[in-house]
Design a binder for these strands. Structure first.
Lengths: 356, 356
DNA sequence: TCCTCTCGGTTTTACGTATAACCTTCGACG
DNA sequence: CGTCGAAGGTTATACGTAAAACCGAGAGGA
């Protein structure tokens, strides 16, 4: 006995297993519309032009609607050999910046009907537990941000298409790179400070070894070097927390030699810490010391004074990154890009007190 | 002709299609280990106790390792009828609080081998574009936070198990609810302010209609009412941004009648705005006006003065929520819970100037 | 001696979809 | 009037996995 046909229901009875059919399948739709399953697949896949008559197509569509039919993703993926799933690797989702990158990426992904899986923290990589044990076997592509780059070797088991964000364009393993014009951002900040009359500038750097921060350091050194009379009085490094930024800023402001009049920080979190440090040392911001941030997080306008900072279009880089990945997956040319940034001048910078 | 067997390779030649086999399948492993595919499945699924000898099992494992075998998720999902995917619905991932909820949920999910899909923003719901068009058909369960509750009707097409976070425990459609003890948090804040001598307290409320904020309002009113001589001088509502909080706080501090000496804010973002408003009005925080937040975001220690606030264990609620969903999916009892909260006393509260 | 377990596998099947390959009209054209 | 082609379907796979059903061999008991 192979099958029992009764009352339109089909219940295989031998071998194998069967779970209770939870929701309508393409076969159910076919039965309801009086066509074959293949026709349903054709119609639902929008590939029926010239293959199925308008009458039949409409019948299928209305049957699908009536039954609440949704194609089973697992079956489709299995058939197609792709997963319509991309992995986004960011160092920390709790950093608003990366949350915004995700938002942009997810939106574009949604338009293409692909889901976004997240590797939300680097801490887990290389350790025993894998957040996405089985997913890794069935991923279409990976988007990774600069700060996560070093952990990537761990991640790249398959030879998945890889799009890098905010990273060294020279990296060979990446299919494409989508960047910000970081160096230009630093040049704008430095130009702003120099124009205000600052000559002694200190750098509050993130102690993260990644391309984006190396570019900041280089561009700053270069810009200061070109300005007559200006000097980079020092570089203090700190982890990306307010407390660490504050401690580093205290070092920068109390070190030997003449005090810097401006602190260029690698991001807004450090800058917020720097403001606290200045105030704790009895220095007014911006009158006695100017502070600049980077990123333009919502934090930049939450603190007092509000931060002069460089706005990075985080959503845009997420969007562009996902669009690029889609292009790579479709074998289309993926050019890569460097998104423009913008200096936002607010209350944390002013003419230095001694100057003028 | 049905099949061609040659050199150990099997290439079906009639009908159907075949994509190039990208990576090792369980059949490849079986061939390498000299066993049947079923045995591989048994061993990899850790269900081989008493079914496969240790020798064979080891052979399978080493073959799998050598070939870099990972089970194909789509095939597994199709077979099992589940997706090992849960959907997390949060109003805005850019809010650090929800990013932390996600982190907790993702970690527990990872331990169970399930992926987490995100509905990162409510704006898309109800509109034409669906971020996860096909995923919705193949989801195991949904976790939704309070603030997203109202949009849920849109989302719940299937009758997926639903775990609600920080929501009304009475909601019928939820399989379980995981909460914070919000009311206790407000009681602690109010008790702290009353003990400092505050008698005129204003409420800076989020203009979001959800359970968690309703509880804040009720608990605050109740606590003030119980305190002799204390009064709630007013309630101003604001969207959850610094700018809106600042505007609302200005209204609260400049309204008719005696000025409140303390501002209880529905979250840290509003509190940060309130601090800015006070300073802009020439009022010192905390000497002339005390401000309290809620959530204990990193923002709370980024501003100056640091915020007295109620710490909500955001990661913990994500973890508990996911654990609860796993229990529901396994048909185990899912009790629900109310996580304890903690008052963190910092620099934004002090004895009122006029009192004492 | 025969019958029944248990151990250690293998064979076979289904999951739901997309699509290559086939089949059947029917109209047009030489 | 035979032939060819297009239109409009249908049939038959295969994707890779899990697991139920089957099966042979040896042990042990009556």
């Amino acid at each position: 006995m192979t099958e029992v046909e009764r009352a339109g229901e089909r219940w295989p009875t031998v071998r194998g297993t069967r779970a209770a059919p939870a929701r309508a399948t393409s076969r159910d739709v076919a039965r309801a519309a009086g066509v074959s399953q293949a026709t349903v697949s054709l119609v639902m896949g929008e590939k029926w032009r010239g293959r199925v008559s308008e009458r039949r197509a409409e019948a299928v569509r209305s049957a699908a609607r009536a039954l609440g039919y949704r194609p089973n993703r697992a079956a489709r993926d299995l058939r197609l050999g792709r997963t319509r799933t991309a992995l986004l690797v960011v160092p920390a989702l709790t950093n608003e910046f990366f949350a915004r990158v995700y938002a942009g990426a997810a939106r574009v992904a949604g338009e293409h009907g692909v889901g976004v899986l997240l590797y939300p923290s680097l801490e887990g990589i290389g350790q025993a537990r894998d957040p996405f044990p089985s997913a890794r076997a069935t991923l279409d592509g990976v988007i990774a941000s600069s700060m996560a780059a070093d952990a990537l070797t761990e991640l790249r088991e398959g030879d998945l298409p890889l799009v890098m964000l905010d990273s060294d364009p020279g990296r060979a393993e990446a299919a494409a790179t989508v960047n910000f014009d970081i160096a230009d951002g630093i040049r704008q900040v430095t130009g702003h400070l120099l124009a205000l009359g600052h000559r002694r500038i200190a750098h509050l750097a993130a102690d993260v070894d990644s391309w984006t921060f190396r570019v900041r350091a280089q561009a700053l050194a270069e810009a200061v070097r070109r300005a007559p009379g200006a000097e980079l009085t020092g570089t203090e490094t700190a982890a990306l927390t307010v407390a660490a930024g504050r401690a580093a800023a205290e070092r920068a402001l109390t070190g030997p030699g003449p005090r810097p009049t401006a602190l260029v920080c690698d991001d807004d979190i450090l800058a917020a810490g720097a403001c606290k440090a200045a105030r704790r040392l009895g220095l007014r911001v911006p009158d006695e010391v100017s502070v600049t941030g980077f990123d333009d997080l919502s934090l930049a306008t939450a603190v007092d004074p509000e931060l002069t900072t460089v706005r990075l279009p985080a959503e845009a880089v997420g969007e562009a990154g996902m669009r690029t990945l889609m292009a790579v997956l479709d074998q289309r040319p993926a050019p890569g890009a460097a998104l423009p940034v913008e200096l936002i001048t607010r209350g944390s910078t002013a003419r230095p007190a001694q100057a003028s």
